[in-house]
């Protein structure tokens, strides 16, 4: 099947980068577990809390209470900027390469002259990207479980662990969808990738600023990162339906729009 041939090509072309990101994610979570195992996190949290001014104690008391537990620290490892950057990099790269990079290089002319439909081409790229992001997310989970096992920490229960992995995957997949949407109408990979990166950065900053400064809390619902809740997931064991709806909705809508644009487009 032509799509299988393309899938093989995508795997060969992207495996080094995807495996590297997955490997770094695994190692990072393993190291987070190693770090957590050396700390008396509850005592550390109490000491840090005591040093804060009263106003900050009120502002951050709840957060610190949940963060300075073993699972809270492990969850922090899943919300670390490095981890978010790894997932985002895979999402943006694969979204940009799918269409814009092929148009820019001119290779898409020769590929779509083969007996593969535009639907087959598009669908194969989407399938590969979602699988690659699942691999990266799974690597993170493996890193956490290995670290917990190696350092005698309480293991994530299955339900929260899977919920966390799924939430991470859904977040990064929604960014892939947005990157693919930008790529679907672009002629240059750099522009599409740059725009996708700016979207990621804007979303991240909106969550950071909205979370830190109450006056800007209205920004929070606009950030996709606000729908990624490692600490909540580890406590409750399931992804809140609002998060599912927003992230899933962004993913499906962006894929649908991207397909609509790509299907109608004159190439190159």
């Amino acid at each position: 099947m032509p799509s299988l041939n393309l899938l093989g090509r995508l795997a060969r072309r992207n495996r080094a980068f995807v495996l590297a990101c997955a490997g770094i994610f695994l190692l990072f979570e393993f190291l987070v577990a190693a770090a957590v195992s050396t700390l008396n996190v509850e005592a550390m949290g109490t000491q840090i809390f005591a040093t804060l001014p009263p106003m900050l104690q009120v502002m951050f008391g709840d957060q610190l209470a949940t963060m300075f537990t073993s699972s809270g620290m492990l969850a922090f490892g899943w919300n670390h900027p490095i981890v978010l950057a790894l997932g985002g990099a895979v999402a943006v790269l694969l979204g940009t390469r799918a269409i814009a990079a092929e148009v820019e290089s001119g290779a898409i002319e020769l590929v779509l002259a083969q007996p593969i439909s535009r639907a087959g081409y598009f669908g194969t790229h989407v399938l590969f990207a979602l699988a690659a992001l699942a691999l990266v997310a799974g690597a993170g989970l493996a890193g956490s479980l290995l670290g917990e096992s190696a350092y005698g920490l309480p293991l994530f229960h299955p339900a929260p662990a899977l919920a966390l992995t799924f939430n991470f995957w859904l977040l990064q997949s929604s960014f892939f969808g947005l990157a693919l949407l930008l790529s679907s109408g672009a002629r240059e990979a750099g522009r599409a990738g740059g725009a996708a990166f700016l979207l990621l950065l804007a979303s991240f900053l909106m969550q950071a600023i909205g979370g830190l400064i109450k006056k800007y809390a209205f920004l929070l619902p606009w950030s996709l990162y606000e729908r990624y809740l490692p600490r909540t997931l580890l406590a409750t064991g399931h992804v809140p339906s609002a998060s599912l709806a927003v992230l899933g909705g962004v993913l499906l809508a962006s894929l649908a729009l991207a397909w609509w644009r790509f299907r109608r487009r004159d190439l190159p």
Binding site: P2, N5, R9, S105, G106, A107, E109, L110, A113, Q114
Partner: peptide, 25 residues
Amino acid sequence: FLPGDLALYPELTGRQLLDYFAGYR
């Protein structure tokens, strides 16, 4: 089909390129 502006994947070898496109049929 041979395009006027031929764009081949630079990172592939000639053999890999021929095999890749043969794989579509």
